[in-house]
Design a protein around this nucleic acid. Sequence first.
DNA 1: GCCAACGTTGGC
DNA 2: GCCAACGTTGGC
Length: 153
Amino acid sequence: MAYWLLKTEPSEFSIDDLEALGSKTEPWDGIRNYQARNIMRDKIKVGDKALIYHSSCKDVGAVGTAEVVENAYPDPAQFNPKSKYYDPKSNRDNPRWVCVGVKFLSKFDNIVALKQIKSTPALAEMVLVKQGRLSVQPVTAKEWKVINQMAKG
DNA sequence: GCCAACGTTGGC
DNA sequence: GCCAACGTTGGC
């Protein structure tokens, strides 16, 4: 069982939207970055857990957790010309992009802000701190524990 | 809205 | 295969 961090823009899809789905599966689609794609395709497995992270918004940080309930499969949005995630260079015989399915686990009592993460020595090695622009990234068991502890306030 | 970091594209 | 131009991400 492994841990991950999934970024989302709350104006597009927030932890509240995920919570509202209850135990329903949400396809984590629209990832259009090869590094992130490879992690989803090769590493993320059913039963893994993920921090949900709000980016590009007022309160940037980790806001809750989700569980992986579906392994990687072709992201349907890449084939839909109406979708903003449409990719004309992809095709069904050889799909370029994948997504995984997740479901809501928890919403944090307190958001663990990026600022706090950056000022916590135990979290200094997080990919989030070292490489800001990756939207799907690994989290160690230690980092997972520390952040969940901080979330309780 | 600005801009730094960095990934992708395309000419050669 | 190099690298400049360009586009996107994402914090501030």
